[in-house]
Protein backbone atom coordinates (compact mmCIF):
# COMPACT_ATOMS: atom_id res chain seq x y z
CA UNK A 1 0.00 0.00 0.00
CA UNK A 2 1.51 3.29 -1.02
CA UNK A 3 0.90 6.70 0.41
CA UNK A 4 -1.33 5.60 3.31
CA UNK A 5 -1.03 8.94 5.04
CA UNK A 6 -2.37 10.68 1.92
CA UNK A 7 -5.40 8.39 1.53
CA UNK A 8 -6.15 8.62 5.25
CA UNK A 9 -6.12 12.40 5.13
CA UNK A 10 -8.45 12.65 2.13
CA UNK A 11 -10.73 10.09 3.80
CA UNK A 12 -10.81 12.13 7.00
CA UNK A 13 -11.64 15.33 5.09
CA UNK A 14 -14.38 13.57 3.17
CA UNK A 15 -15.94 12.28 6.37
CA UNK A 16 -15.94 15.86 7.63
CA UNK A 17 -17.71 16.92 4.45
CA UNK A 18 -14.98 19.26 3.28
CA UNK A 19 -12.14 19.54 0.83
CA UNK A 20 -8.53 19.18 1.93
CA UNK A 21 -6.39 22.31 2.13
CA UNK A 22 -3.14 21.54 0.34
CA UNK A 23 -0.51 24.19 1.10
CA UNK A 24 2.71 24.72 -0.86
CA UNK A 25 5.92 26.26 0.42
CA UNK A 26 9.43 26.35 -1.00
CA UNK A 27 11.93 24.53 1.22
CA UNK A 28 14.75 26.79 2.35
CA UNK A 29 12.88 30.01 1.60
CA UNK A 30 14.05 32.41 2.91
CA UNK A 31 16.34 30.08 4.91
CA UNK A 32 16.10 26.52 6.23
CA UNK A 33 15.12 27.32 9.81
CA UNK A 34 12.44 29.83 8.88
CA UNK A 35 10.96 27.52 6.28
CA UNK A 36 10.83 24.76 8.90
CA UNK A 37 8.94 27.12 11.25
CA UNK A 38 6.63 28.06 8.36
CA UNK A 39 5.81 24.39 7.73
CA UNK A 40 4.85 23.91 11.36
CA UNK A 41 2.77 27.07 11.20
CA UNK A 42 0.96 25.76 8.12
CA UNK A 43 0.06 22.50 9.82
CA UNK A 44 -1.06 24.40 12.92
CA UNK A 45 -3.20 26.74 10.83
CA UNK A 46 -5.27 24.08 9.14
CA UNK A 47 -3.19 22.83 6.21
CA UNK A 48 -4.19 19.20 5.67
CA UNK A 49 -1.42 18.29 3.25
CA UNK A 50 1.87 20.06 2.64
CA UNK A 51 3.66 20.30 -0.66
CA UNK A 52 7.28 21.11 -0.07
CA UNK A 53 8.92 22.72 -3.07
CA UNK A 54 12.45 21.63 -3.88
CA UNK A 55 14.33 24.55 -5.46
CA UNK A 56 15.59 24.36 -9.04
CA UNK A 57 17.47 26.92 -11.09
CA UNK A 58 15.19 26.52 -14.11
CA UNK A 59 11.59 26.17 -12.94
CA UNK A 60 9.94 26.43 -16.34
CA UNK A 61 6.43 25.47 -15.14
CA UNK A 62 6.41 28.14 -12.44
CA UNK A 63 5.31 31.74 -12.51
CA UNK A 64 7.28 34.64 -11.03
CA UNK A 65 6.26 34.06 -7.38
CA UNK A 66 7.65 30.53 -7.17
CA UNK A 67 10.60 31.36 -9.44
CA UNK A 68 11.65 34.02 -6.94
CA UNK A 69 11.08 31.64 -4.02
CA UNK A 70 13.41 29.12 -5.67
CA UNK A 71 16.02 31.83 -6.20
CA UNK A 72 15.79 32.91 -2.54
CA UNK A 73 16.16 29.31 -1.43
CA UNK A 74 19.12 28.62 -3.71
CA UNK A 75 20.80 31.85 -2.60
CA UNK A 76 20.47 30.64 1.00
CA UNK A 77 22.06 27.30 0.11
CA UNK A 78 18.84 25.39 -0.57
CA UNK A 79 18.90 22.12 -2.51
CA UNK A 80 16.97 18.88 -2.88
CA UNK A 81 19.10 17.46 -0.09
CA UNK A 82 18.25 20.28 2.33
CA UNK A 83 14.59 19.96 1.28
CA UNK A 84 14.65 16.38 2.55
CA UNK A 85 16.37 17.57 5.75
CA UNK A 86 13.52 20.03 6.40
CA UNK A 87 10.99 17.29 5.67
CA UNK A 88 12.69 15.00 8.20
CA UNK A 89 12.65 17.69 10.89
CA UNK A 90 8.95 18.30 10.25
CA UNK A 91 8.14 14.61 10.38
CA UNK A 92 9.77 14.25 13.80
CA UNK A 93 7.15 16.63 15.17
CA UNK A 94 4.13 15.80 12.98
CA UNK A 95 3.23 12.21 12.20
CA UNK A 96 -0.09 12.81 10.43
CA UNK A 97 0.25 15.59 7.86
CA UNK A 98 1.16 14.12 4.47
CA UNK A 99 4.27 15.64 2.92
CA UNK A 100 4.69 15.83 -0.82
CA UNK A 101 7.99 16.90 -2.35
CA UNK A 102 7.35 18.94 -5.50
CA UNK A 103 10.09 19.86 -7.91
CA UNK A 104 11.89 19.14 -11.15
CA UNK A 105 13.58 16.02 -12.45
CA UNK A 106 17.21 17.06 -12.66
CA UNK A 107 18.05 17.41 -8.95
CA UNK A 108 16.40 14.01 -8.37
CA UNK A 109 18.36 12.31 -11.15
CA UNK A 110 21.49 14.02 -9.90
CA UNK A 111 20.97 12.61 -6.40
CA UNK A 112 20.26 9.21 -7.93
CA UNK A 113 16.80 7.62 -7.90
CA UNK A 114 17.60 4.95 -5.31
CA UNK A 115 19.34 7.37 -3.02
CA UNK A 116 16.53 9.89 -3.37
CA UNK A 117 13.85 7.28 -2.65
CA UNK A 118 15.69 6.03 0.44
CA UNK A 119 16.26 9.49 1.80
CA UNK A 120 12.71 10.67 1.07
CA UNK A 121 11.27 7.60 2.78
CA UNK A 122 13.54 8.06 5.79
CA UNK A 123 12.47 11.71 5.97
CA UNK A 124 8.80 10.70 6.16
CA UNK A 125 7.86 12.02 2.72
CA UNK A 126 4.67 10.45 1.32
CA UNK A 127 4.70 11.42 -2.33
CA UNK A 128 6.58 13.20 -5.07
CA UNK A 129 5.38 15.54 -7.82
CA UNK A 130 7.86 16.06 -10.63
CA UNK A 131 6.57 18.69 -12.99
CA UNK A 132 8.72 17.68 -15.94
CA UNK A 133 8.25 13.91 -15.69
CA UNK A 134 5.09 13.04 -17.63
CA UNK A 135 3.85 9.42 -17.41
CA UNK A 136 6.04 8.53 -20.41
CA UNK A 137 9.17 9.38 -18.43
CA UNK A 138 8.43 8.57 -14.78
CA UNK A 139 8.65 4.75 -14.73
CA UNK A 140 12.09 4.58 -13.13
CA UNK A 141 11.16 7.11 -10.44
CA UNK A 142 7.89 5.29 -9.69
CA UNK A 143 9.76 2.01 -9.33
CA UNK A 144 12.32 3.49 -6.98
CA UNK A 145 9.68 5.19 -4.84
CA UNK A 146 7.26 2.26 -4.80
CA UNK A 147 9.97 0.16 -3.14
CA UNK A 148 9.54 2.47 -0.14
CA UNK A 149 5.77 2.93 -0.32
CA UNK A 150 5.93 6.45 -1.77
CA UNK A 151 3.56 7.68 -4.46
CA UNK A 152 4.27 9.56 -7.66
CA UNK A 153 1.49 12.14 -7.86
CA UNK A 154 0.36 12.67 -11.45
CA UNK A 155 -0.81 15.92 -12.96
CA UNK A 156 -3.84 16.44 -15.19
CA UNK A 157 -4.54 19.68 -17.02
CA UNK A 158 -7.15 21.34 -19.24
CA UNK A 159 -5.35 19.78 -22.23
CA UNK A 160 -5.77 16.27 -20.81
CA UNK A 161 -8.38 14.53 -22.96
CA UNK A 162 -10.34 11.44 -21.98
CA UNK A 163 -7.83 9.18 -23.72
CA UNK A 164 -4.90 11.03 -22.22
CA UNK A 165 -6.47 10.86 -18.75
CA UNK A 166 -6.45 7.07 -19.03
CA UNK A 167 -2.71 7.23 -19.64
CA UNK A 168 -2.26 9.62 -16.70
CA UNK A 169 -4.34 7.35 -14.45
CA UNK A 170 -2.30 4.26 -15.25
CA UNK A 171 0.21 4.23 -12.40
CA UNK A 172 -1.24 7.25 -10.57
CA UNK A 173 -1.26 7.07 -6.78
CA UNK A 174 -2.13 9.22 -3.77
CA UNK A 175 -4.21 11.83 -5.56
CA UNK A 176 -4.36 13.57 -8.92
CA UNK A 177 -3.20 17.16 -9.03
CA UNK A 178 -5.51 18.96 -11.43
CA UNK A 179 -3.92 22.06 -12.93
CA UNK A 180 -6.84 24.50 -13.21
CA UNK A 181 -5.56 26.40 -16.22
CA UNK A 182 -3.09 25.96 -19.07
CA UNK A 183 -0.32 28.12 -17.68
CA UNK A 184 2.32 28.46 -15.02
CA UNK A 185 1.84 28.45 -11.26
CA UNK A 186 0.19 31.60 -9.93
CA UNK A 187 -1.53 32.43 -13.23
CA UNK A 188 -5.20 33.34 -13.52
CA UNK A 189 -7.68 30.58 -12.68
CA UNK A 190 -9.67 28.78 -15.35
CA UNK A 191 -13.42 28.76 -15.90
CA UNK A 192 -15.38 26.93 -13.22
CA UNK A 193 -17.33 24.72 -15.64
CA UNK A 194 -14.15 23.52 -17.36
CA UNK A 195 -12.55 22.76 -14.02
CA UNK A 196 -15.59 20.84 -12.83
CA UNK A 197 -15.50 18.71 -15.97
CA UNK A 198 -11.75 18.12 -15.75
CA UNK A 199 -11.91 17.20 -12.07
CA UNK A 200 -14.76 14.79 -12.61
CA UNK A 201 -12.96 13.11 -15.49
CA UNK A 202 -9.79 12.78 -13.43
CA UNK A 203 -11.68 11.36 -10.46
CA UNK A 204 -13.70 8.92 -12.57
CA UNK A 205 -10.75 7.53 -14.52
CA UNK A 206 -8.14 7.49 -11.75
CA UNK A 207 -10.37 6.45 -8.86
CA UNK A 208 -8.30 8.83 -6.74
CA UNK A 209 -9.06 12.07 -4.92
CA UNK A 210 -8.43 15.16 -7.05
CA UNK A 211 -6.88 18.39 -5.79
CA UNK A 212 -7.10 21.58 -7.86
CA UNK A 213 -4.28 24.07 -7.99
CA UNK A 214 -2.47 26.75 -10.04
CA UNK A 215 -3.86 30.23 -9.63
CA UNK A 216 -5.79 29.88 -6.36
CA UNK A 217 -4.98 33.04 -4.40
CA UNK A 218 -7.97 34.23 -2.42
CA UNK A 219 -10.26 32.60 0.12
CA UNK A 220 -13.12 33.17 -2.28
CA UNK A 221 -11.39 31.23 -5.09
CA UNK A 222 -10.37 28.52 -2.66
CA UNK A 223 -13.97 28.19 -1.50
CA UNK A 224 -15.22 27.84 -5.08
CA UNK A 225 -12.72 25.10 -5.82
CA UNK A 226 -13.50 23.39 -2.53
CA UNK A 227 -16.98 22.79 -3.89
CA UNK A 228 -15.61 21.16 -7.05
CA UNK A 229 -12.73 19.02 -5.87
CA UNK A 230 -11.41 16.88 -3.03
CA UNK A 231 -8.59 19.27 -2.32
CA UNK A 232 -7.49 22.83 -3.06
CA UNK A 233 -3.82 23.68 -3.55
CA UNK A 234 -2.52 27.14 -2.69
CA UNK A 235 1.10 27.99 -3.41
CA UNK A 236 2.01 31.35 -4.89
CA UNK A 237 -0.18 33.29 -2.42
CA UNK A 238 1.65 31.72 0.54
CA UNK A 239 5.07 32.04 -1.04
CA UNK A 240 4.38 35.74 -1.64
CA UNK A 241 4.03 36.18 2.13
CA UNK A 242 7.61 35.00 2.50
CA UNK A 243 8.64 37.52 -0.11
CA UNK A 244 6.81 40.31 1.70
CA UNK A 245 8.54 39.37 4.96
CA UNK A 246 11.94 39.43 3.27
CA UNK A 247 11.22 42.75 1.60
CA UNK A 248 10.17 44.20 4.97
CA UNK A 249 13.62 43.26 6.24
CA UNK A 250 12.01 40.84 8.71
CA UNK A 251 12.33 37.36 7.21
CA UNK A 252 11.27 35.66 10.45
CA UNK A 253 7.94 37.44 10.26
CA UNK A 254 7.12 35.06 7.37
CA UNK A 255 5.90 32.59 10.01
CA UNK A 256 3.29 34.98 11.37
CA UNK A 257 2.23 36.17 7.92
CA UNK A 258 1.79 32.61 6.69
CA UNK A 259 -0.22 31.72 9.77
CA UNK A 260 -2.69 34.51 9.07
CA UNK A 261 -3.14 33.66 5.39
CA UNK A 262 -3.30 29.90 5.98
CA UNK A 263 -5.97 30.26 8.68
CA UNK A 264 -8.09 32.38 6.41
CA UNK A 265 -7.73 29.92 3.49
CA UNK A 266 -8.42 26.98 5.77
CA UNK A 267 -11.60 28.60 7.08
CA UNK A 268 -12.75 29.43 3.57
CA UNK A 269 -12.18 25.86 2.38
CA UNK A 270 -13.72 24.25 5.46
CA UNK A 271 -16.90 26.26 5.33
CA UNK A 272 -17.26 26.42 1.54
CA UNK A 273 -19.65 23.53 1.05
CA UNK A 274 -21.80 24.52 4.04
CA UNK A 275 -22.03 28.07 2.76
CA UNK A 276 -22.93 26.92 -0.73
CA UNK A 277 -25.60 24.49 0.51
CA UNK A 278 -27.19 27.36 2.43
CA UNK A 279 -27.34 29.73 -0.56
Amino acid sequence: MTAERISAKFEACRSEGRAAFVAYLMAGDPDLDTSFECLKALAASGADIIELGAPFTDPMADGPAIQRAAQRSLAAGGSLSSTLDVAARFRLEDKVTPLIVMGYANPIFSMGLTNFAERAAAAGVDGVITVDLPPEEDASLREALAAHGLAVIRLATPTTTEARMKRVSDGAAGFVYYVSVAGVTGAAVGAEEDIREGVERARRLSGLPVAVGFGVRTGEQAARFACLADGVVVGSALVEEVRAAVEDGAPKSAVKRITVVAQSLSNAISSARIVRSMT
Binding site: P158, T159, T160, V168, V179
Partner: peptide, 12 residues
Protein backbone atom coordinates in the same frame (compact mmCIF):
# COMPACT_ATOMS: atom_id res chain seq x y z
CA UNK B 1 16.39 12.68 -25.61
CA UNK B 2 12.85 11.85 -24.47
CA UNK B 3 9.92 14.11 -23.63
CA UNK B 4 10.46 15.74 -20.26
CA UNK B 5 7.72 18.34 -20.38
CA UNK B 6 4.82 19.46 -18.21
CA UNK B 7 1.65 17.43 -18.69
CA UNK B 8 -0.08 20.46 -20.25
CA UNK B 9 2.35 20.24 -23.17
CA UNK B 10 2.32 16.46 -23.62
CA UNK B 11 -0.78 16.28 -25.86
CA UNK B 12 0.69 18.97 -28.10
Amino acid sequence: GGRYVAETLMPL
